[in-house]
């Protein structure tokens, strides 16, 4: 008797596992299909969006990307790369500095500052875009794509929360130990806390590097409103957004693929830190 019971339990478990595998494969297909479709379309000579596989395979979509001057993909890519690099560095410094100050240093107005940032986060951001553009003009650096950098990292202190969550986990007695050993708060930050927070630093760099690639709203606005900009000055996002009509769908797909490859590679290389950041950060909310 025992054997039968033992078998049926194992059988139920096995079938449950099979069912889960099926569900997971279906989910994977759904999630991966659009990218598969994207890659296929990027090789289609005549863009026929209806069929998955291109009627005729060709490479000239990619060729047009690098040759045509109406769609100077290389310039776009370089512009965005430079902007993303600058934003990554500056934004990480701002975020880590604010997060460290708010998490470990006790000063008057600390709670007030955190509440202020919370409230500011509730306003829809881009209404102020017009004003930012004007402020940049006031400072004389409007028009060019590099004013984007300033807009991206200027108010990055707002996204201090996840880094603060991480700094809170480091125990306070380390600070006291250093103070007794003879270091100042600056030594604590540079020689103790930073070396310990490698995961969160990489997470912040990753996030601040990838966000400029995805933003087209402000770029689109600057492109629209300044007269001196040619298409060579666009960022990738703005450039691709401007390819609207379906006839150039293949070129769009090629452009999209070329953009996604470096970012996705970077992402998988640093995946461990990203997961840690999200799980850690989310837990602290």
């Amino acid at each position: 008797m025992a054997e039968k019971h033992f078998a049926s339990k194992r059988f139920a478990e096995k079938s449950q596992r099979v069912l889960i595998y099926v569900i997971l494969t279906v989910i994977s297909v759904i999630w991966l299909f659009p990218f598969f479709y994207l890659i296929m379309q990027s090789f289609a000579k005549v863009s026929n969006p209806k069929s998955i596989f291109p009627v005729e395979w060709t490479f000239d979509n990619y060729k047009t990307l690098f040759t045509s001057d109406t769609r100077p993909f290389l310039n776009w890519w370089l512009n965005t790369f430079l902007i993303a690099l600058a934003t990554a560095v500056l934004q990480t410094i701002f975020v880590l500095a604010t997060a460290y100050a708010l998490s470990r240093l006790r000063f008057a107005g600390r709670k007030g500052l955190m509440k202020l940032i919370l409230i500011l986060g509730m306003f829809p951001g881009f209404l102020g875009m017009l004003v930012n553009y004007y402020l940049l003009q006031l400072l004389g650096i409007d028009g060019s794509m590099f004013s984007l950098i300033i807009v991206y990292f200027a108010s990055s202190a707002m996204s201090y929360y996840i880094a603060k969550g991480f700094f809170d986990t480091v125990s306070r007695s380390l600070d006291e130990a250093v103070m007794i050993d003879g270091g100042s708060k600056n030594t604590v930050f540079w020689r103790i806390i930073l070396p310990l927070s490698k995961p969160i630093i990489i997470y912040t760099i990753l996030i601040s590097f990838t966000s400029p690639w995805g933003d087209f709203m402000f770029g689109n606005f600057i492109a629209g409103s300044s007269r001196t900009m040619t298409s060579a000055d666009y960022t990738v996002a703005v450039g691709l957004y401007k390819i609207t009509d379906m006839s150039e769908f293949g070129v769009f797909c090629a452009g999209a693929v070329m953009v996604s490859i470096p970012i996705t590679a970077l992402f998988f290389w640093l995946q461990r830190y990203y997961v840690e950041g999200i799980a850690g950060g989310a837990v602290k909310g």
Partner: peptide, 18 residues
Amino acid sequence: TVLIFTIAVPQFVSLMLI
């Protein structure tokens, strides 16, 4: 990793594609 793929690809690329 399959699911992370969608986060890896910039959101605006996948949205415009869809």
